[in-house]
Design a protein around this nucleic acid. Structure first.
Length: 343
DNA sequence: ATGTGAG
DNA sequence: ACTCACATA
């Protein structure tokens, strides 16, 4: 999902047109100007407007909100008066900017690599295909499946892939626990949050014998590699982008007439599994809210653990967690099923 | 070790 | 925000 521009904003955003141009400016600053501060500034401004309950009618009005200063206020006025932004018009006309923005959409190519390629005169995907010698393995696969990787994955397809993954892994040992996270989780229809489609397939795996206390490095290394080998042999996994002790990134294909899909598999310690599951199920906004609630209750929650905060603010020993509900329970937060975590 | 990239 | 994997030095 890394390459996708923006998350769906929830209930009717009255300032969506402003958010759109701010997001585009943010992308430009990140990918072309390589100015992370401006990138963050535009993103924050966009996020502020996205949740603002009323339609903004002037720059001055916007400026009263947090994260919006002089410059953005002026842009809002310009947009309100002319329906466009000269700065964006210029960017659209600029071939170098367009080339960098395009190359950046290839999985594995970031702003730095894109800039180097454009300096070498490469400005589109055909040029890039002719110069695959300049790309690493990840980037070659990203280019090969450029279109496939930008397709959303229907929930029904993820369900099928889930079946194959579970079947193959359980065949190694039924004690493995396997969950598909991300927007897949939320649903009544297809994904853990139940959204109808996802950008990629994020799989979490654990085994009771593998805990953070008892890492047994050599062994866990062979575990993930074995899983990946089996899923490759059965034809599901088609490409490996990276494979470490705890994380696989690659591609899979359910049927030959379907697109290649991005697949990640993480092997997590059993004692940290439910914090991970919560974290990777998201949504991002939900995680943020839940974490700040945890803080109010004197706990710190991250990808791995839920820990009480001592009076000095130092985190204590992790709370033992055996299911997702328990995390909600401990911090006194009303339980939300994955489908209810879209916000 | 450091930078890049993904998520 | 933070971590993992990789490439290069």
């Amino acid at each position: 999902m890394g390459k996708r521009k923006h998350e769906e904003t929830n209930n009717e955003n009255l300032n969506k047109d402003f958010c759109d141009f701010l997001s585009e400016l943010a992308q430009f600053e990140k990918n072309v100007s390589r100015n992370i501060h401006k990138y963050n500034a535009y993103r924050k401004a966009s996020a502020t407007l996205a949740v603002h309950p009323t339609r903004i009618t002037s720059g001055a009005e916007a400026k009263k909100l947090p994260n919006i200063g002089d410059k953005i206020a002026k842009k809002i006025d310009e947009f309100l008066q002319t329906g466009k932004l000269q700065k964006l018009e210029n960017i659209h006309k600029d071939e170098r900017s367009q080339a960098i923005s395009l190359l950046t959409r290839v999985s594995g190519i970031g702003p730095s690599k894109a800039q180097k390629l454009v300096e070498k005169g490469i400005s589109n995907l055909d040029d890039l295909k002719k110069h695959s010698d300049l790309l690493n393995h990840h980037q070659i696969i990203g280019l090969k499946y450029f279109n496939d990787f930008e397709q959303k994955i229907p929930r029904s397809e993820i369900k099928e892939i889930e079946k194959v993954i579970k079947k193959k892994i359980k065949k190694i040992d039924v004690k493995y626990e396997i969950n598909i996270c991300g927007s897949y989780s939320f649903c009544l229809f297809p994904n853990r949050r139940g959204k109808a489609e996802s950008g990629d397939i994020d799989t979490l795996v654990t085994h009771p014998n593998y805990t953070s206390k008892n890492p047994d490095k050599a062994h866990i290394d062979s575990v993930l590699k074995t899983i990946v080998r089996k899923l490759t042999n059965c034809g599901l996994i088609t490409e490996t982008l990276s494979l470490g002790e705890t994380k696989f990134m690659g591609a899979c294909q359910l049927k030959s007439d379907l697109p290649m899909r991005r697949l990640d598999i993480r092997f997590q310690p059993y004692d940290q599994y439910y914090c991970s599951l919560l974290y990777f199920t998201g949504s991002d906004v939900f995680n943020q809210n839940m974490r700040s609630h945890a803080l109010e209750q004197g706990f710190t929650l991250n990808e791995y653990t839920l820990r009480p905060l001592g009076c000095t603010g130092v985190p204590g020993e992790p709370v033992e967690i055996t299911c997702e509900e328990e995390i909600f329970d401990v911090i006194n937060y009303p339980y939300k099923s994955p489908e209810e975590r879209n916000n």
